[in-house]
Design a protein around this nucleic acid. Structure first.
Lengths: 226, 226
DNA sequence: ACCCCTACATGATTTATGTCATAGAAGCCT
DNA sequence: AGGCTTCTATGACATAAATCATGTAGGGGT
């Protein structure tokens, strides 16, 4: 019995949930646990992608940086979710950087090991297709959003998307919300203040609680702020 | 020998290229050919996704509409490319609408048939993962773009992305470029006119030829126009 | 308890882009 | 050829958001 902890974790991920304990055991042999301090980077955009990861504990922020140095947050990942996989499947460098948000533990699996594992476990491929499909769908929705909505709509939609994943209380600063919407921190603060005044959210330092989801949904649909 | 035409087409798609002729033959049995007139819709966002498609001839435009009715073009697909697949893998409604650009022929495969085919052909799953990964990467790049760049940068990047797929002469109206960038037609026309004046593109009615790719690349990186 | 650093807040001003209006030009169909 | 539609073009104006500036408040560390 190698590592109950690792098999347990793997068991709790979407893509490996269907494996039996023997298969999990085999996979756990390939998995390496790594620990990261807050704000420590797990990989950088452009690096060769030798590893694919699953969040074990904490949160991981995946971002791309514009040439001017401005950050754009592509996604947040929570325990049980994989990241870094796109690059691994294609043998290309990572297309974005990954950074630990708080104290974070992840398990990594080497690209080669994972690809051979996949070759012998087709059901996992199907799960991965499912997950990638979901992410693609969400990316397209977000694209439409960035293209069509203005500040209030963008923020409303990001808040809704985050809430559907993390619950109504969101642990993000205005700066981070700005980095997810492509707005400036100032505009984000102003809009969030309007939301607060209208009792749509309650806000504290580094966190936001959604009070009126229906209102956000209306705003996100492009309807005027009342 | 059922349909040389269909097996030939299937053979030319990324995801089926590795199949042998017997497997292709089996797949061709499942495939139905359909023909669409220009501007005819193949499916609408929100419809149940019973079919998955491959472009045979012509071009397919996949768009999402904002509640105000404004179109956002998610992607263009050319012969050999699949579309409508995300919904099919998840048993959810189509997340976007697909529309024939010119006279277009596609082949469709029923969801159930395709899923069972996949179950018995793991190598195809791997190809699909590859394609989805590529699309996800491109969607993320575009997200960063919409979030970080202004009109000139957005247009430059869309032009580059389209050119890498279709060659330097692009068959799109300003309206369509606007629908891909989230800009208004007026702004698109103004920016494209500036590009024309600076000999970065040559333009005609419904088409644009890229003359100075390096300049576009600079502009797309957020560097000033100059 | 204090300080310091970071997050939040808000005003003044500028600027890019959207909006509204109008018109010329190029294809297309009869 | 003529007329109609669609695309391109351009000006005037309105406005949302960025930018610049400055100040306040809350937590964490010493």
């Amino acid at each position: 019995m190698i590592s109950t902890k690792k098999t347990d974790l793997l068991k709790r991920t979407d893509i490996f949930a269907s494996l039996d304990s023997k298969e999990l055991e085999g996979l756990a042999h390939l998995a390496v646990e790594r620990r990261f301090a807050p704000d420590e980077f797990i990989f950088w955009e452009g690096q060769p992608a030798h590893w694919f990861y699953i969040v074990q504990e904490g949160q991981v922020k995946v971002s791309k940086y514009s040439p001017s140095g401005r950050e754009f947050i592509v996604a947040f990942f929570t325990p049980g979710e994989m990241f870094g996989e796109v690059a691994v499947f294609q043998g290309k460098p990572y297309p974005a950087s990954a950074c630990a948000v708080g104290e974070t533990r992840v398990v990594g699996i080497r690209r080669d090991d994972f690809l051979s594992f996949l070759a012998t476990h087709p059901s996992v491929s199907l799960k991965i297709i499912h997950v990638l499909g979901e992410r693609l769908r969400s990316a397209h929705t977000r694209l439409r959003d960035l293209a069509a909505e203005r500040a209030e709509g963008r923020l409303a939609n990001i808040l809704l998307m985050l809430a559907s994943k993390l619950g109504p209380t969101l642990p993000f600063t205005r700066q981070e919300l700005a980095d997810m919407t492509g707005l400036t921190p100032e505009t984000t603060i102003r809009v969030m203040s309007r939301f607060r005044d209208r009792k749509i959210v309650r806000s504290g330092r580094g966190k936001t609680t959604i009070l009126d989801e229906a209102a956000l949904r209306r705003i996100g649909e492009g309807l005027p702020l009342n």
